[in-house]
Amino acid sequence: MNTVFVVQHVHLLLPQEEEDVKLIGVYRSLHSAQAAARRMASAPGFRDHPDIVDSSHAGVGAGEGFHISEYRLDEDNWTSGYVTQVN
Rank of each mutant, 00 (worst) to 15 (best):
R72N: 15
N2G: 10
V7M: 07
W78Y: 14
A43R: 13
Y71C: 03
E19D: 03
D54M: 08
R38K: 15
M1I: 06
F66H: 04
V26K: 10
A35E: 12
L73P: 07
H67T: 07
T79F: 07
D54N: 14
A43F: 02
S32W: 00
D20P: 09
I52V: 05
Y27R: 05
L14Y: 04
V10W: 06
D51E: 15
V7G: 04
R28H: 13
A58G: 04
Q16G: 04
G61L: 08
A41P: 00
S69D: 13
L14P: 10
G61H: 02
H9M: 11
M40I: 04
V7C: 03
Y71H: 15
E17A: 05
D20E: 12
S69T: 15
H49V: 08
D20V: 14
L73M: 15
S32I: 03
D54F: 08
E64K: 00
V4D: 02
N2V: 12
S55M: 09
V26D: 09
G45F: 11
P15K: 01
A36F: 01
P50S: 10
D76S: 06
Q16C: 08
H9I: 01
L12I: 06
L12R: 11
N77V: 14
V21K: 14
V7S: 04
L23I: 06
G59V: 03
V21C: 13
L23R: 12
D76R: 13
A58C: 06
G65I: 05
I52S: 05
I68C: 05
Q34F: 04
Q8G: 13
A62D: 01
I52W: 00
Q16K: 10
A41Q: 02
I52D: 02
D51G: 09
R28L: 11
S56E: 03
A35R: 11
V7D: 00
M1D: 11
N77L: 12
E17W: 11
F46P: 09
S56T: 14
I24Q: 07
M1P: 01
L30R: 15
H31L: 10
H11A: 09
A33S: 12
H9S: 01
E19K: 09
R39F: 07
I52T: 01
R28Y: 03
H11K: 01
M1T: 06
E18D: 14
G61A: 08
P44I: 05
L30T: 05
S69R: 15
V26T: 09
R47Q: 14
S55E: 13
L14G: 05
Q16S: 13
G61M: 09
F5H: 08
A62I: 08
